[in-house]
C-alpha cells in the first residue's frame, strides 16, 4: 500500500461539500507518513473490525445453504461436506404464507412511501414558499415533534384503529406511518435553497403554485426526494412494532412480523431460521446495492434514518 495516495475519490463523491483532493495535493505525504509499524497496526485493527462485522451476515448466509444436520454440527464446517442445498429456502417458501407476507410488506411499504413523500413535499413547499397565518407556529410544532418517537403513541393509535375498524387492514398498517415530521422539515429546508427567481417567471406567466411545484421545484429536488423515499421505504419495511400491534390475522402480516410467528414452530431448525433471516433482508439488500450512495449521503448530510 502506497503511502502517498490521496483519499479515495469514491468517498468524496459520497459526501458532498467535500473538496475532492486533486492529484497535485499529494502533499498528504506529511500526514500519511506514519511510521510503518503504526500503519500496519492501523490496517490490522481495521481488517479485524471489518471481519468481525461481516462474519455474522456471512455465517448466516452460509448456514442457510446447509442441510439441518450440518447447520447444527460441531465443530463448525465452513464448506458443507454434503454440498450446498436450497432445501431450507424451499421449506420456508412452501410454508404457505411467506410469499403472501412479502407481498403485504411490499404493498404497505410502497404505499407508506408514496403517501409520505407526496404529503411531505406539498407541506414542505407551502412552509418554504407561501405565507399564511400560523406559519411560524406550524413550523415550530413540526420541528418539536421531530424528537418524539412514534413508538410512544402505539397505545392510543391502537385504540384509534380499533374505533376506525382498521385493525387487521392494510390501511391500519399504513396510515399512522405516513406522518413524518422530519421529512417535511428536510424537504422544506431543501426548497428554501432553491433560487426563487426560477419560479418568479412562471408566476408572472400565470402558472399555478401546484404547477410550479410539479414542473419546476420537484425536478430540481430529485436527489432529496430520492433520499427521503429510500429512508421512508426502509423504515416501513423494517417496522416491526406497529404491524405487530395492529395485525393479528396471519394473512395480513408483514414479513418481519409473520416470520416471527413461525420461528418458534421451527424450533432448532437453524438452516431454516437463517433462510428466513436472509429472505426478510433480501429486498433491502437489493435496495442498498442500488442506492448505497444516496443512503450514506442522506445520513451524512441530514442525519435522517428510517423509523
Amino acid at each position: 500500500m502506497s503511502a502517498a495516495t490521496p483519499t479515495s475519490p469514491a468517498l468524496s463523491k459520497a459526501v458532498p461539500a467535500v473538496k475532492a483532493p486533486t492529484l497535485a495535493a499529494t502533499g498528504t505525504r506529511s500526514r500519511r507518513r506514519a511510521p510503518a509499524p503504526a500503519r500496519i497496526l492501523a490496517f490490522v485493527i481495521l481488517a479485524v473490525l471489518a471481519l468481525a462485522w461481516l462474519t455474522p451476515v456471512l455465517w448466516a448466509t452460509l448456514t442457510s445453504f446447509k442441510n439441518e444436520a450440518e447447520a447444527a454440527a460441531m465443530p463448525v464446517t465452513i464448506v458443507p461436506e454434503n454440498g450446498f442445498t436450497l432445501q431450507a429456502y424451499v421449506n420456508v417458501l412452501s410454508e404457505g404464507l411467506v410469499p403472501r407476507w412479502a407481498w403485504n410488506s411490499l404493498i404497505t411499504s410502497a404505499a407508506v412511501t408514496l403517501i409520505t413523500v407526496a404529503i411531505s413535499a406539498l407541506a414542505g413547499y407551502a412552509l418554504s414558499r407561501l405565507r399564511f397565518a400560523g406559519r411560524q407556529m406550524l413550523i415550530t410544532l413540526i420541528v418539536a415533534s421531530i424528537m418524539i418517537p412514534g413508538q410512544i403513541l402505539i397505545v392510543p393509535l391502537f385504540h384509534l384503529m380499533l374505533n376506525l375498524n382498521l385493525v387487521d387492514t392494510y390501511w391500519g398498517i399504513i396510515l399512522p406511518q405516513v406522518v413524518a415530521a422530519p421529512m417535511v422539515f428536510i424537504l422544506k429546508k431543501f426548497f428554501d435553497q432553491i433560487p426563487f427567481e426560477l419560479e418568479e417567471a412562471a408566476l408572472m406567466d400565470g402558472a399555478s403554485r401546484l404547477r410550479i411545484l410539479w414542473s419546476i421545484v420537484l425536478p430540481l429536488s430529485r436527489p432529496i426526494l430520492g433520499a427521503v423515499a429510500i429512508f421512508v421505504f426502509i423504515g416501513a419495511w423494517n417496522n416491526f412494532l406497529w404491524p405487530f400491534i395492529v395485525v393479528n390475522d396471519s394473512n395480513l402480516m408483514t414479513l418481519p412480523t409473520g416470520l416471527q410467528t413461525v420461528i418458534s414452530a421451527y424450533g432448532i431448525q437453524y438452516a431454516q431460521n437463517m433462510a428466513q433471516a436472509v429472505l426478510a433482508a433480501l429486498p433491502l439488500i437489493v435496495v442498498f446495492m442500488f442506492f448505497q450512495r444516496q443512503i450514506i449521503k442522506g445520513i451524512a448530510t441530514t442525519g435522517i434514518a428510517g423509523s
Partner: peptide
C-alpha cells in the same frame, strides 16, 4: 429511529 441534524444538502 427518525432524527435530523441541522445540516441539509444544497441544490
Amino acid at each position: 429511529m427518525t432524527t435530523t441534524s441541522p445540516t441539509v444538502p444544497r441544490p
